[in-house]
């Protein structure tokens, strides 16, 4: 017979335990951030590792980000086209797609995609390095894993999510424009005019600030869970799971606060 869950037997204890758990992880992530910042002033990290990670995390994510963004643009049009037509407001399609893609949908969807692809891979890689003593191997060779492994990865993730968001925004808008033409016959010029006449630089920067913060959250969360793997292969799997859930939660919560502050 299955054992009753701790939530039923000891609800206060279970909630308290969960809160303590979250606080412990949050504290460790903040400590990791401080250590990363200390390695950046003055800059003391491995440049070849940064290049390697920029390529691995960025370049190889381009196809999936472009594909996702293209169809996200299409979805925006499919969802709104009926109403735009009904209210004869098709000229607002460019503004509507641009506003939602640049400010919200672009950074959050690309962030989640990046977390699933790059963040989880980063946790698995670091976790495997912990389990197979490669991190201790670096320390034994007098190499600071923070400067050699962590800082280049954090920088690469922040930079690459920013750049991928720029690229994803452009592709999503292109997708929206194309689907606008295909679904409701909206001319490219009309879409473009709606886009540029109503949107400003602040709409773009709003989304890009979010991309920077999401990049930092994904980087720190994935590195934290990767470095704290316990219990072999099973532990690596558990940490990857925690990193993806933690990053997604961090993205959604920070998105709420950033939207509140930046609007």
């Amino acid at each position: 017979m299955a054992r009753p869950s701790r939530l039923l037997l000891d609800p206060l204890g279970a909630v308290g335990g969960a809160v303590m758990d979250i606080a412990t992880h949050l504290g460790a992530v903040v400590t990791l951030l401080v250590r990363v910042l200390r390695s950046l002033v003055p800059p003391r990290f491995d440049l070849p590792e940064l290049w390697r990670n920029l390529y691995k995390m960025g370049n190889q994510s381009v196809p999936i980000v472009m594909l996702t963004a293209f169809f996200v643009g299409g979805i925006m049009v499919v969802q709104s086209a009926v109403f735009m037509k009904r209210f004869q407001a098709t000229s607002l399609l460019g503004w509507g797609a641009g506003y939602s893609v640049l400010r919200e949908v672009g950074p959050i969807l690309i962030g989640l995609m990046f977390s699933g692809r790059v963040g989880s891979n980063n946790t698995a890689e670091l976790g495997t390095m912990v389990v197979t003593e490669q991190i201790d191997g670096l320390r034994a060779l007098s190499i600071d894993p923070m400067r050699y492994l962590i800082v280049p990865r954090v920088l690469a993730m922040v930079i690459m999510l920013f750049l991928l968001t720029v690229l994803g925004d452009l592709v999503a808008l292109f997708g929206a424009m194309l689907f606008g033409k295909l679904i409701i016959g909206l001319e490219f010029g009309v879409f473009y005019a709606g886009l540029v006449s109503s949107l400003g630089v602040s709409d773009l920067t709003h989304g890009l600030v979010k991309a920077l913060v999401f990049g930092l959250i994904i980087a720190l969360t994935s590195c934290h869970f990767g470095l704290n793997v316990k219990g072999g292969a099973v532990g690596v799997g558990r940490s990857v799971n925690s990193a993806v859930v933690g990053s997604a939660l961090g993205i959604v919560l920070s998105d709420y606060f950033l939207t509140y502050v930046l609007t």
């Binding site: 197979t132 003593e133 490669q134 201790d136 191997g137 320390r139 060779l141 190499i143 600071d144």
Partner: peptide, 23 residues
């Protein structure tokens, strides 16, 4: 601390149980 230890560890060569080769 870890920084001082870096200098001490230069005196060591270590073969780990799992080899710890960088994959």
């Amino acid at each position: 601390d870890e920084r001082e230890m870096m200098k001490v560890r230069r005196k060591f060569g270590m073969l780990f149980q799992n080899n710890a080769l960088f994959d």
